[in-house]
Simulated assay, not measured.
Amino acid sequence: MEELKWAVVGPGEIAHQFASAMQAEGRKIEVVGARNKTKGEAFAAEYGIGKVYDDFDALFADPEIDVVYISTPHSNHYEFMMKALQNGKHVMAEKAITVSSGELKDILLLAKEKGLIVMEAMTIFHMPLYAKLKEIAEERELGALKMIQVSFGSAKPADPTNRFFSMDLAGGALLDIGTYALSFARFFLNEKPSEVLSTAKKFETGVDEQSGIILRNDQDEMAVVSLTFRSKMPKRGIVAYENGFITVEEFPRADQATLTFTNGETEEITAGDTKMALQYEIRDMEKSIKAGENPLSELTEDVIDVMTQVRSEWGIKFPFETK
Rank of each mutant, 00 (worst) to 15 (best):
313 E>F: 00
249 E>S: 12
293 E>Y: 15
315 G>K: 07
314 W>F: 15
196 V>N: 09
276 M>R: 14
236 R>L: 14
201 K>Y: 12
220 D>Q: 13
232 K>N: 06
239 V>P: 07
230 R>Y: 04
180 Y>M: 12
191 E>P: 04
251 F>S: 02
224 V>G: 05
183 S>K: 09
266 T>M: 09
227 L>N: 06
190 N>K: 12
226 S>P: 00
259 L>V: 06
258 T>N: 03
307 M>P: 10
265 E>D: 15
239 V>I: 15
196 V>D: 10
204 E>W: 05
241 Y>M: 07
244 G>F: 08
223 A>K: 04
237 G>P: 00
185 A>L: 03
278 L>A: 00
281 E>W: 01
299 L>H: 12
212 G>C: 08
204 E>Y: 07
221 E>M: 10
188 F>G: 04
216 R>F: 02
179 T>H: 14
294 N>T: 07
233 M>C: 03
242 E>M: 01
229 F>W: 06
256 Q>H: 13
203 F>N: 11
307 M>C: 10
197 L>D: 12
260 T>C: 02
266 T>N: 09
189 L>H: 00
218 D>R: 10
267 E>A: 06
297 S>H: 02
201 K>C: 00
234 P>Q: 04
281 E>N: 11
212 G>R: 13
264 G>A: 09
291 A>M: 06
199 T>W: 13
227 L>G: 00
200 A>R: 09
282 I>L: 13
257 A>T: 05
241 Y>E: 01
240 A>H: 12
231 S>L: 07
224 V>D: 02
192 K>N: 08
197 L>F: 15
218 D>L: 08
282 I>E: 03
267 E>W: 08
191 E>D: 11
185 A>K: 01
257 A>K: 01
253 R>H: 11
305 D>N: 07
297 S>V: 15
259 L>M: 05
267 E>C: 07
295 P>N: 06
194 S>Q: 14
241 Y>W: 03
269 I>L: 03
292 G>V: 04
218 D>E: 12
184 F>Q: 12
236 R>G: 01
199 T>K: 14
192 K>P: 06
194 S>N: 13
184 F>V: 00
218 D>K: 11
223 A>Y: 07
296 L>V: 10
300 T>V: 10
183 S>T: 14
256 Q>E: 15
259 L>N: 05
